[in-house]
Design a protein around this nucleic acid. Structure first.
Lengths: 218, 218
DNA sequence: TCGAAAACCGACCGTTCGGTAGGTAGATAG
DNA sequence: CTATCTACCTACCGAACGGTCGGTTTTCGA
């Protein structure tokens, strides 16, 4: 009420766009890019197709907006950990992997990966933006933690690309598998996130010659 | 020339189907499922759409055939390693991971994964067949090698699901990443298969408390 | 209160989609 | 020679696609 009119107007525009983006993201995740028509999106948003084209120039821009949306929040969650000076590097790494699992398996930005692969030939710039604006910064943040641990003596030095390969690989596969087999009624039995995640964390710590997070043998 | 007419006829049918499957697979990998029309497939095969429907009842059966095709060859390559009694379990494991990298990153059956995710809601049976007829047997074969190594004392016991998670994850992510960023001209620089694979093998061996494949420090 | 901009709409465009009807060429079997 | 079968064709279907048109309603600062 106390905000300026201009700001309110901008918020109104953002909110409408955001609402469309959120609805569209769900439809894309359920039916794929080509499997989701602009008419279906409009109906899902409670407006007509013509109104939808008032907010977005085309299906490609809408898709790009859906992929881009969530970058910031996802990266900020990891960034907050990196900036936290009360945690050891080992603790930071453990928490970072947990956050990355949440992002990759649960959030739209992680679950969008197969869709980006689907349209990567049609819209190469969407794939490239995804790489430069999300993948690369995410790797940078993780690498900051590793460097911190190496200089504090908590971790042994490792090859950067190989660490990324083993650190991100399993969580990406888990996300892809859960999309591929989303119709399984025993999905969590086949792909139990928290169990696989915790074992994976110990493997990453092992790569760095650090103590495992949980003792498994006694 | 000496073969019976019936056999020749059967071969002709098989060859035509196979030719269509191979052509279609390439088109699917390039443009996705929804991005590849039956007309484009027919044109790619040098026949008309009506002729295409003479060989396959519909797009779904054709896609299913493309996914299924290659199961046998891919699994047989790993099976041959398991049956080879001249190799140690450690050597078998190393070679198996290499073969699995080839299959997952290079072959159609591995590169099809994002497509299966794309249509998993539309054709759940395709995803389920992929799981029961390819994923599960592949895991079984790898697990045979692990069990062999554990009983011979080469490997320490590990949790089955967690080993699969860390063993298959990185190669699946590599395959997905190479599909997502297929338009990158510096793809091999970002995702160098052999380099990442060899480091990954050492991590897997480390999980089993076995010696690394290559010494990295001297 | 008024004017302009933003938001929205029904109706429609050309194109392409998966799929089909009906017929033809050529090989084969009796 | 004839009946049959496979493989293939041209021509076409209704439906859905992404996108656009001209016009109407709503919002809001002045």
């Amino acid at each position: 009420m106390q905000r300026s009119n201009i700001l309110e107007q901008e918020n109104a525009v953002l909110d409408r766009r955001t609402q469309i983006i959120l609805t569209t993201t769900q439809l894309f995740l359920e039916n794929g890019f080509s499997g989701t028509s602009m008419s279906a999106i409009a109906k899902g948003c409670g407006i007509t197709k013509a109104s939808l084209y008032h907010h977005f120039t085309g299906k490609d821009e809408l898709f790009s907006a859906c992929v881009t949306y969530g970058y910031t929040a996802a990266l900020e969650a990891v960034e907050a950990l990196v900036e936290d000076h009360d945690l050891s590097a080992r603790r930071k790494l453990i928490e970072a992997i947990r956050v990355l699992y949440d992002i990759t398996v649960e959030s739209s930005v992680g679950r969008m990966s197969p869709l980006i692969a689907e349209v990567s030939r049609e819209f190469p710039n969407v794939a490239r933006d995804f790489h430069t604006e999300y993948i690369e910064p995410e790797r940078e943040l993780l690498w900051k933690i590793i460097k911190e641990g190496v200089s504090s003596g908590e971790f042994s030095p490792v090859d950067q690309n190989q660490l990324f390969h083993v650190a991100f690989g399993p969580m990406v596969m888990l996300s892809l598998a859960r999309e591929m087999f989303a119709t399984f009624d025993d999905l969590d039995e086949h792909f139990p996130v928290s169990n696989l995640r915790d074992g994976h964390i110990d493997v990453i710590l092992g790569m760095l010659n650090a103590e495992p997070d949980r003792k498994r043998k006694e």
